[in-house]
Design a protein around this nucleic acid. Structure first.
Length: 269
DNA sequence: GGCTTATGCGCAG
DNA sequence: TGCGCCTAAGCCA
């Protein structure tokens, strides 16, 4: 589940459900028990996301930093709480709802300064108000790395994961191996604007849909259908299946230890 | 029930 | 480049 849209959606929910009130904090699994004891009953000041990172600020200087990694989940439910099942790293309890964190790569208590240091290492986030495509362009336009690499580099742009990468490149007819240097400015401007819309849509719906007949004239009449990840996409995890637009078999290759998907016809160099 | 895979990423070497 | 993290879902038998 977790690309940037997931974390921003969680931040929004947690801000609404828990912020500005005392929160019960526990770690049934025990791995976050010491920190939970410190925070239990304290006021959650703010929940926010940057890229794929989630930050819960308690009081002024204590920040819980969460990164879901590949398979972490943060579920919510209405009170009353169920008895913890399985490995439950962190549970937050508010007045009406509670939230359970399982399997995160990171769940740690930091100072405000330490949390800021993490954010300083991240590139601009398309889902934040201060998103600055110009800063991203500065990095991309100077790079000899392929776009497939650059879009997944959280120092270049944060929040983009394997699905958004594949889908963005498809939507702009770009060969994933195109280098940053070779990209033209107009195409980047269009990609950046598109990415903001796609990711905001992801936050709203809680899933990634990139096939949008309403803004893609080529897709008029396309019969919507969900793929196995729950959304509707052009190429992600569709290896060997016909491209929705041209019918060519979607290809896949391992790129820097991650699966890359593209249509060799629509995305020819 | 077991095996594979995964929308991530830091680290060892 | 490959491993480990530590979880759930999909697939097969």
């Amino acid at each position: 589940m977790p690309e940037g849209h997931t974390l921003h959606r969680l931040a929004k929910r947690h801000q609404k459900l828990f912020a500005r009130r005392p929160v019960r904090v526990s770690s049934p699994q025990g791995r976050f028990a010491d920190a939970a004891a410190v925070l239990d009953g304290r006021v959650l000041t703010r929940a926010e996301a940057h890229g794929k990172h989630l930050f819960h600020t308690f009081g002024r200087d204590e920040v819980v930093h969460v990164h879901l990694g590949l398979y972490g989940t943060f579920d919510e439910a209405e009170l009353p709480v169920e008895p913890p099942r399985g490995q439950l790293r962190l549970r937050l309890e508010g007045d009406t709802h509670y939230a359970d964190l399982r399997g995160p790569t990171a769940c740690e208590l930091l100072t405000r300064a330490e949390a800021l240091a993490i954010r300083d290492r991240l590139g601009p986030d398309p889902l934040r108000r201060d998103f600055d495509p110009e800063r991203v362009w500065t990095r991309i336009s100077k790079s000899t790395s392929p776009l497939a690499t650059l879009l997944m580099d959280q120092k270049v742009i944060s929040g983009v994961g394997n699905v958004y990468r594949a889908e963005l490149l498809f939507r702009h007819n770009l060969d994933p191996q195109t280098t940053g240097k070779a990209l033209d400015r107009g195409t980047w401007d269009a990609m950046a604007a598109d990415l903001v819309l796609l990711m905001k849509d992801g936050v709203r719906k809680g899933r990634i849909d990139t096939v949008r007949p309403e803004d893609d004239p080529r897709r008029k009449g396309f019969a919507a259908r969900k793929d196995r990840h729950g959304g509707e996409v052009y190429v992600y995890r569709r290896a060997g299946m016909p491209c929705h637009l041209c019918g060519t078999e979607v290809r896949t290759a391992t790129h820097q230890a991650r699966n890359l998907f593209w249509c060799p016809t629509c995305q020819a160099s």
